[in-house]
Design a binder for these strands. Structure first.
Length: 821
RNA sequence: GGGCCCGUAGUCUAGUGGUUAUGACGCCACCCUUACAAGGUGGAGGUCGGGUGUUCGAUUCACCCUGGGCCCACCA
């Protein structure tokens, strides 16, 4: 077989990707008796293009998959896409330049489904390009019938278990997207705002001053509080008496021209009636534990709902009735600002307050607000009917379950613990959106009962389908229009994938491994664990491996808005998929990596070196017969001993999911020990068999064959394309497997000679000294010398090799000495 | 404010309670050696973020400080 002079990754990578897919190299065999290793592959959200972070973490998971497959496992390695929910709606709106709100639900869903068909295909191609060894026939999308059915069944089971419940409750909503959103869908944004100091009249005739960033919620004010043990000041301002905390007085006395009349305690004015400006609503001034004298004016007002703190206030004072002022669109539904949203109402209320002489000061502040991560809109808290999964009572159970997972790296478990401990709300699973899995239920029009879909009819769409009748006899129903939160479905990927093979379901679930990146521990990992625990009382997987993030060259998160996005497609085009994977393998599991384009050169160079070393090897293996010679030369045994160590260490590293260690060890062994030393040593025996004897050549050939094959196999999980190409070019005709990726993982050679390693090591030391001597004397490495060595007798079996590789005319016994000729 | 992770040469990175701190890119010098100049050999480059402590000995362990990242909470 003629081997091309240069390696062409573009052609070769495509060729083998096609071959693997066509020959179903990575096919899961449900009938096989081999032990199953199952991977709960993350279904990426279809978002147009695979990004660099994907190629980073999916490569890392693929290293493990390929290793396990070669170890002899029957690999269950599916691939799915997550393509419903808000993210998908946004994508379709952008791609098709439409607005979901302005279309009929039916048309929008239809558009989503048809558009996704094309997008999904293009998106999947990206993942195939990096050489993922998934069984692409095991495929699901979280919006298909199979997933809808499982998701709806899950809901029905949880409802029957009294875990799913519907309640009118304050929930975070996005006024822009018109939907409820979960805790995890929000992010922080630093904004400039004003802390507004507002005057309200007390029944005594004095005025209290309260401070707020949400003045527009005045019509929804449900409490004004202070600290009963705090010190406040009655101060004269023109003809009025103002009451603020002592700290506030000290801060503002000059600016506001206040004259202190007396100091009082908060309790002196508790229970007095306050009249609010504009609305003239009357409230009782109360004590509250959260009112602190040092912030603002020391007097707090609470609304429905200014934020979490207002929710908590109402929890502390259950006797107070909330005033629901907003609907899902974020607009006021009552009061003087009816029809306006928060921004509009705020502008207007501030003007009105000013006109009423009630606005004392607008203090500029910077504060952090919660915004919807998908659109950047400030979130609001609104009370609406939503479906929840009850789980706050199970925090301890989840903590225990989390601890039972084998975390790699171990410390990542703290992120889950931290999250569980901080949970405050049950899981809100309803979304007022369109493209998602529908709730499988209706409400009876006459008695209001919840009517669940029949399990045998799943999946259902309550807007299209109808139940037979209600228990009360009524045949009129109101369908639930809401859809399930996308995580309610994607949290079932282990069950979704496993149930594609019902006969071996029990062997697939719980899965062996969940690989994912660290940013979604708190939702995807946590939610999946929750579902598995709620339904089956078990963990969904045994092991968890957590990948880091690919960051930009400066170590910052990549984002379109920052313009620092690096496209993996471009990098693969410029270098190769193997180079990109080689880079992904150079970072420890869990560690973030800032991407430096020059690092792809390392992978490229490694490929070139591997190619050239193979080219050399095959030149000398033309007439090779796979038969072990009776006696191996000492140096050949030496390299096999070194190889054994690498095989042992690599296997162990891989078993601990430390692929980066395997990669580094093999890389070093190959380049240094194998190429720079071993290949140079055996050249003479291979080229000059007439002088050195055929036995020496056969020994070298045998060793060369097996060590190169082992190196290829050890590296094949990391760089699958070039290793396959080299395997196919030569090794395949001697080996039984039609792909290196389903060949056996290398095992150690049986070599018992203990002295050999020391002899070889001493040999290398002498060789290094000779090379140094030649370089320092500016001689070419082939320059001939006379060599004197201290242990000539010990090295008697390798003297011919030593002579050849050092170009020594003669080797003498004595103190180490090198002389040029 | 809380949790977790990280800080090692110009850049990226390995690593360990103990001789001279690993490798790669880049840099310098030499070598066209029958696989490979996209190579080989040799070299320069580091107060292992700063401080304190534990120890015979700390880059490694503990504490504090500082810078960065991610997650969470958050001030009316």
């Amino acid at each position: 077989m003629k081997i091309p002079k240069n390696y062409n990754p573009k052609e070769v990578e495509q060729k083998w990707q096609n071959y693997w897919e066509k020959n179903k190299i990575y096919k899961f065999d449900p009938k096989s008796k081999k032990k199953i290793y199952s991977i709960d592959t993350p279904p990426p959200t279809v978002s147009g293009k695979m990004h660099l972070g994907h190629s980073f973490s999916y490569s890392q998971m693929d290293f493990i998959a390929r290793f396990k497959r070669m170890q002899g496992y029957n690999l269950f390695y599916p691939f799915g896409t997550d393509d419903n929910g808000l993210a998908t709606e946004r994508l379709i709106e952008k791609e098709k330049k439409v607005k979901a709100k302005e279309m009929s639900r039916k048309d929008f869903i239809k558009l989503c489904l048809t558009t996704l068909k094309t997008l999904r295909k293009e998106y999947l191609r990206d993942f195939k390009l990096i050489g993922l060894s998934c069984d692409w026939d095991i495929f699901y999308t979280t919006i298909n019938d199979h997933c809808r059915k499982i998701s709806q069944k899950s809901f029905i089971d949880l409802y029957k278990d009294k875990r799913a419940y519907r309640i009118k409750s304050p929930i975070t909503i996005c006024p822009h997207c018109n939907t409820a959103i979960a805790q995890v869908e929000t992010e922080d944004k630093d904004k400039e705002s004003t802390l507004n100091y507002i005057k309200a009249k007390l029944e005594t005739g004095d005025y209290i001053i309260y401070a707020t960033t949400r003045p527009e919620l005045l019509p929804a004010c449900v409490g004004i509080t202070l600290d009963k043990n705090g010190t406040y000041v009655r101060a004269k301002k023109d003809n009025e008496i103002w009451i603020i905390s002592k700290e506030a007085f000290d801060r503002f006395k000059d600016e506001w021209k206040l004259v202190k009349k007396e100091e009082i305690k908060g309790k002196d004015i508790v229970n007095k009636i306050v009249t609010l400006p504009i609305t003239n609503a009357k409230l009782t001034l109360l004590h509250d534990t959260e009112a602190k004298t040092e912030y603002g004016s020391g007097i707090v007002y609470w609304c429905t709902y200014g934020g979490v703190e207002c929710l908590e206030y109402l929890e502390r004072h259950p006797e107070i009735e909330p005033i629901h002022i907003m609907d899902l669109s974020g607009k006021h539904i009552l009061g003087p600002y009816k029809g306006l949203n928060s921004t509009e109402a705020r502008k207007k209320v501030l003007k009105d307050l000013k006109d009423n002489n009630a606005l004392v000061l607008m203090e500029k502040i910077k504060h952090t607000v919660n915004v919807h991560e998908r659109c950047g809109t400030d979130i609001e808290y609104v009370s609406t009917e939503q479906w929840f999964i009850k789980y706050l009572d199970l925090k301890n159970k989840f903590l225990k379950a989390g601890g039972k997972l084998n975390w790699h790296p171990d410390y990542m478990k703290h992120r889950l613990y931290n999250w569980i401990k901080g949970l405050k709300w049950d899981w809100c699973i309803s979304r007022q959106r369109f493209f998602g899995v529908p709730f499988p239920l209706w409400y009876c029009k006459s008695c209001g009962e919840v009517i669940l879909a029949d399990e045998k009819d799943l999946p259902v769409d309550p807007l299209k389908n109808k139940p037979k009748k209600c228990k009360c006899g009524s045949k009129e129903f109101i369908p639930e229009k809401d859809v399930l939160d996308t995580w309610a479905t994607s949290s079932m990927t282990p069950q979704i994938a496993a149930s594609l093979f019902p006969k071996v379901y029990d062997k697939l679930y719980p899965m062996s491994l969940r690989p994912q990146a660290h940013d979604i521990i708190t939702f995807w990992l946590f939610n999946t664990m929750v579902k598995s625990q709620l339904h089956n009382n078990i963990n969904p997987w045994k092991d968890v491996v957590i990948s880091g993030w690919a960051l930009d060259p400066k170590g910052k998160k990549m984002s379109k808005s920052k313009g620092n996005v690096i496209e993996p497609q471009e990098m693969m085009g410029k270098y190769s998929a193997d180079s990109l994977r080689f880079w992904a393998a150079s970072t420890k599991l869990g560690e973030d990596s800032s991407f430096q384009e020059k690092e792809l050169i390392s992978g490229q160079k490694f490929s070139t070196k591997l190619w050239n070393a193979s080219k050399f090897s095959f030149m000398h293996l033309k007439e090779y017969k796979p038969k072990k010679p009776k006696n191996l030369e000492t140096i050949d045994k030496w390299i096999l001993i070194k190889l054994n160590k690498i095989i042992k260490d690599s296997t162990k590293s891989f078993e601990n999911y430390e692929y980066s260690k395997t990669k580094a060890d093999v890389e070093n062994f190959f380049w240094n020990t194998f190429c720079d030393h071993y290949l140079e040593i055996i050249k003479d025996r291979l080229y000059n068999a007439d002088k050195r004897g055929i036995k020496g050549k056969k020994s070298a050939q045998f060793t060369l064959y097996h060590s190169l094959l082992a190196i290829l196999k050890l590296m094949s999980p990391i760089i699958p394309h070039i290793t396959e190409e080299i395997y196919q070019l030569y090794f395949k005709k001697h080996e039984k497997q039609k792909s290196i990726h389903i060949s056996e993982w290398p095992t150690q050679f049986k070599i018992v000679d203990k002295k050999t390693e020391r002899i070889g090591d001493e040999f290398i030391q002498i060789l290094n000294k000779v090379r140094k001597f030649k370089t320092q004397n500016k001689l070419p490495l082939k320059h001939e010398i006379t060599l004197t060595i201290p242990n000539k007798n010990k090295l008697k079996d390798v003297l011919e090799d030593l002579k050849a590789v050092t170009k020594a005319k003669e080797i003498k016994q004595g103190k180490l000495n090198i002389k040029k000729l």
